[in-house]
Amino acid sequence: MQYLHNIGTYFLMIVEMFRKPTKWSVMKQLILKDIDDLVIGSIGIVAFISFFVGGVVTIQTALNIDNPLIPRSLVGFATRQSVILEFAPTFISIIMAGKVGSFITSSIGTMRVTEQIDALEVMGINALNYLVFPKFIALTLYPFVISIAMFLGIMGGLAACVFGNYASMDDYITGIQQDFEPFHMAYAFIKTLLFAFVLATVPSYHGFYMKGGALEVGEASTTSFVWTSVVIILLNYILTQMLLS
């Protein structure tokens, strides 16, 4: 029953988030701050991980192709497919659940335990709109981060391929252009946008409705990471079944 209650509260939170909007002059500043904290601040770690994981995918694919009849361009093809379809949208979103999700939960949770949310409510401000809505808007730029992850993942693969002598640069580039389905990009970005919504709202829910003190803020961050990851993985399965099968 508690799960049902929590799910119900989560959806009510989403409805409430769009009600009683905060003054635009204030909201604009909040959105810009959240873009900086959540999107711009994540580019570094996303770039680093994408480049090296792209390289690892390439090396592992190359090492597993020992049949001389299979063209070496398959290394580029497999890297592109892995990075665009799964690694960039899903794997990076799980990492973001840890980085951005924990930040959102702990910052909102700290505001809860230090009565800052009560202060907003006493002033008649819709605290959910003030705190969660700008994060949701900021994370609509999340596909931009994922585009960088896709590009750097494939570039990491190219670097690993060329420097490790697994295939020539021409083979790799032929591979990444081979049988390209534009719909795969649409699929990846549809997933990304939905994951962005999950990344903004699930951690906010855990921070906003937490009870207790500093210790509970830490617990809420951990719980938030677990549930954000679970929701992303379930959504990933459902969307893949719906869009690709």
Partner: peptide, 23 residues
């Protein structure tokens, strides 16, 4: 709701822990 919002604008509150916005 609108009247409540107007009423709340007339209320000042000092919280136990001050509740200042950290940011």
């Amino acid at each position: 709701e609108a009247e409540k919002r107007n009423m709340r604008a007339k209320i000042g509150m000092v919280f136990q822990g001050s509740a200042l916005f950290d940011s």
